Computed example of a mutant assay.
Amino acid sequence: MTDLWLGALLLVSLVATLWPFIFYPLILRTLPTRPEQPVVGPVPTASLLFCAYNEADAMPEKLANLAMLKGVHPTLEILAFDDGSSDGTGDLIAAQGDLVMLIRGPGRSGKAHGMKQLAARARGDILIFTDANVLLDGQAIDNLLARYADPDVGGVLGSLQYIGQDESATASVGSLYWRIEERLKDEESRTGNVLGADGSIFSIRRSLYPDFPDSVLDDLTVSMVVVFAGKRLVKAKDVIARERLVTARKDEYRRKVRIAARAWHTHSHLRPQLRRMAAIDRFKYASRKIVRWFGGLFILTGAVAAGALAMRVSPMLYMVGALAVALVIWAGVRTKRGPFAALVDVLIAYAATLQGVAKAMTGRTVTIWNPAKSR
């Protein structure tokens, strides 16, 4: 009976770990397509918003990209919030004159606070949110606004393409993870709603913009309000954004802990509204977010179950298996490329996410951020 329970625990752990990446996508593919219903009408106006902190290195390329977007779409309003930068980021933005409306924060107050300040001043019908280190393709704005021809569409996500995936195993794993994430969003969009956006590129109708505390993850909170309002949150494949990957494990670990902590805090804040969503949207949310947040715990319980089973079969088998795992991890830690390094980076990502969730469960969260030095 003990062997049966250990085997069941190992199987459940394995299925739960793989669920967001294998089983959930397969289920999505069986769901019917929900087409959009565009109508003829005026093209809405738009405001593009971003927050920055100590992004002086990225700002020249960002500002050139914004000038290009303004040339393609002259009516685009651009607003930026400088979160108390100490490297001259705000001065670089201010030097662009009328290209960007700059709001300087009094000190470190966080992205959520900054975005609320920008949204309160924006005049466009559509609010477009992006990051200070993200570059948009020339037709991104027009392609994004075209999706709002369907009155049922309340929010539109873009497609993120990462740069620098070959620079380290950390970057390679991050790139693979994001390609899977993009495909999941495509399938979710095809079948109804995408369940949440990230901050690289997404938009909503300004009339839907919610009020929320500074401690939550603003991109998840703001995008989910579209679903709560009974509108569609969809993804546009032809709205392309580009961002450079983080290449150092230390930077990526801190980033994932911060994001996971704020995501769980946001989940707690949104829980009453999440419970009122349609059944299909609750299923999507649980599959792509909740199950993934606890992936590290599933890996840990699966490893314990596998070790206990091996010990019951043969102590020698347990010792050989444990030594093999230790050697693989040791090799992965000491290298920056190759399959062993990639495996270690996957485990690090799961550990960081679990640590962030555990941190949020104790009531702690993170309201400010520091840009990764290894981008």
Rank of each mutant, 00 (worst) to 15 (best):
M277Q: 14
A197P: 03
L18Q: 15
G164R: 00
A278F: 07
G356T: 00
H73Q: 12
I329E: 05
V40S: 12
V346R: 13
A8R: 15
M101W: 04
A95Y: 06
G97F: 15
R183F: 13
R232C: 07
P371I: 01
R364K: 13
A358I: 11
G88H: 06
L160E: 01
A119E: 05
R147C: 15
G332M: 02
L18I: 13
Q161C: 03
V194I: 04
T335L: 05
P315Q: 06
T130R: 01
I103A: 04
A46Y: 02
S287P: 02
L28R: 12
Q355A: 14
A229D: 06
P315A: 09
Q273C: 04
H269G: 06
R292C: 04
H73N: 12
T45L: 13
S287F: 01
E36W: 10
G158L: 01
A119M: 07
L217N: 11
F129V: 00
A260Y: 00
M68I: 07
V346K: 10
L176N: 14
P213F: 05
P32I: 02
D345Q: 14
G296H: 03
W293A: 06
G296S: 09
R255T: 12
L28E: 15
T191F: 06
I78W: 02
A260M: 00
R276W: 03
K235E: 07
L127C: 14
A349L: 13
T2V: 15
G84I: 01
L66A: 00
G90H: 07
W293K: 04
A52M: 15
V12K: 11
E55D: 11
V246K: 15
E188Y: 00
R255D: 13
T191G: 11
L354S: 12
T75M: 07
E181D: 08
A16G: 08
G332A: 04
D137G: 13
G155I: 00
G107W: 02
F21C: 05
P35I: 09
W293H: 08
Q37F: 11
W264T: 02
F340Q: 10
I126T: 08
V357M: 09
L195W: 05
R364E: 15
N193C: 10
Q117A: 11
F298I: 00
I201W: 06
A119P: 02
L245Q: 05
L102D: 11
D83N: 11
L208N: 10
I201F: 14
L99I: 06
H113G: 03
R276V: 10
G199K: 03
T266R: 08
G7H: 05
Q117H: 08
L11R: 06
L157W: 09
L300Y: 04
G138T: 12
V333K: 11
V257N: 08
I259G: 03
L217Q: 09
R276D: 11
D214M: 04
V156M: 01
S172T: 07
G71C: 03
V153I: 12
I329D: 05
D152C: 13
V234C: 02
I141A: 11
T33S: 14
I27D: 08
D125R: 12
L127N: 15
Q273R: 10
S172C: 09
A120S: 13
L184E: 10
K185N: 15
S223P: 02
V134S: 03
L157S: 14
R364P: 03
R262F: 05
S215W: 13
L4Q: 08
V226G: 07
G199F: 03
T335A: 05
A352Q: 05
P272A: 09
G196D: 05
R288I: 14
L63Q: 11
